[in-house]
């Protein structure tokens, strides 16, 4: 469960109302459904989320189906209020288990563009 933005327009470091050491804190564990429910609030954001889904689809095509991702950047901030603009991007860090029988080198050979952030950003 991801809390709402605080007055500063960002996700609070700890879920509101809970003590500072509580485990319900950033990075908030959630699933893609909740991310979409909470952040697909404009056409620009929907476009970025579609891009994220496309990226995950490409990962699954090369056998990467187990792992988790950190999401960050202006997508996770209320930039519409703070800076009167749409978010520019989603920063994604992917932690994954190597598919059975693959190495990093064999994966890279299969789909080099998938692992170049300059390609996946677009």
């Amino acid at each position: 469960m991801i809390p709402e933005w605080n007055m500063a327009g960002v996700l609070p470091p700890v879920s509101p109302g809970l003590p500072g050491a509580h485990p319900n804190r950033s990075p908030y564990e959630t699933d893609l459904d909740h991310v979409i429910d909470q952040f697909a609030t404009s056409p620009d954001r929907i476009k970025m989320l579609k891009g994220l889904l496309d990226f995950r689809l490409e990962l699954s095509k090369v056998g990467i189906t187990k792992g988790f991702q950190w999401l960050d950047e202006s997508f996770l901030e209320n930039v519409e209020d703070l800076e009167s603009r749409s978010p520019r991007d989603i920063d994604v860090v992917t932690f994954y288990y190597l598919p059975e029988g693959e190495t990093q080198q064999s994966l890279l050979i299969k789909q080099p563009a998938l692992f170049q952030s300059s390609n996946t950003k677009d």
């Binding site: 990093q104 890279l108 170049q116 952030s117």
Partner: peptide, 16 residues
Amino acid sequence: EENVIDRLGLESRLEE
């Protein structure tokens, strides 16, 4: 060196 994807990600961030 063999963790080419890990390195690629960090090299890209370093360049940025």
